[in-house]
Design a protein around this nucleic acid. Sequence first.
DNA 1: CACGGGTGGTTGCGCAGGCAACTACCTGCC
DNA 2: GGCAGGTAGTTGCCTGCGCAACCACCCGTG
Lengths: 125, 125
Amino acid sequence: MDILERELTERRGISLTWYDALLQLTEAPGHRLRMSELADSIVISRSGFSRAARRMEEAGLIAREPSPEDGRGAYVVLTDQGRRTFRNAAAVHLRGVARHFLCHLSEEEAAVVETALRRIRPARR
Amino acid sequence: MDILERELTERRGISLTWYDALLQLTEAPGHRLRMSELADSIVISRSGFSRAARRMEEAGLIAREPSPEDGRGAYVVLTDQGRRTFRNAAAVHLRGVARHFLCHLSEEEAAVVETALRRIRPARR
DNA sequence: CACGGGTGGTTGCGCAGGCAACTACCTGCC
DNA sequence: GGCAGGTAGTTGCCTGCGCAACCACCCGTG
């Protein structure tokens, strides 16, 4: 994780936390999520994400807009620049995962690890 | 990791970083290691470990003693209390790993993951 | 309609840890 | 022996994040 984090920040200027957030938004319907949905899915506290979101907004990667149906809530939306940044970052990150992790595994091992992780993830408490 | 960290701090009052350090010392010959050996093996910066070591010393888990053969260096040595604390912490931690991770894997899957991780670890750069 | 309890997001505070700079020392070369 | 360059550990500064407290708002109940 440390190596992947370093590569991403050095070569694309974003942290793994930001990467995870951009990934979630990229996969979300409408490229939009509620603040806390996103915070939960990337496993960060709400307060932590509140600050991260402000910084990401300042960096132009996301926009925050108040929720029309809930006066307390806010949506986070991916901007075009956010989408571009994520695409570039993904190239670096996936390459990093391949070069530092996957390359040490056979096809079969990788398959076993993948199914195991898919089974474990939803069990998070 | 988050869950394991929380369980360990709540139930034994030590962080995963401290746990890792105690583990390395427990396995080291003579229960002693140089500061930087230990820092490297638990993947933390030297400065970070320098502070952690001070706190662990204050907590009575380790002792630091200057190296006789190198006037710059220092050894970290596990104290009796450190050994006891580690044993108790290990019970909690291993249980946690079993309950949150291993229990989702079959015997075969666990074996595959283990051999894969053993192969990856020494390749760390 | 008022009000009490619950929820979403932000802010004050504290802490762990990384980087860079520093000190003390070691080592190899002249 | 002296000096230059490298290395071990510590410290100043900064950042990211968690917890707890807070505010604004929602909703169910009387």
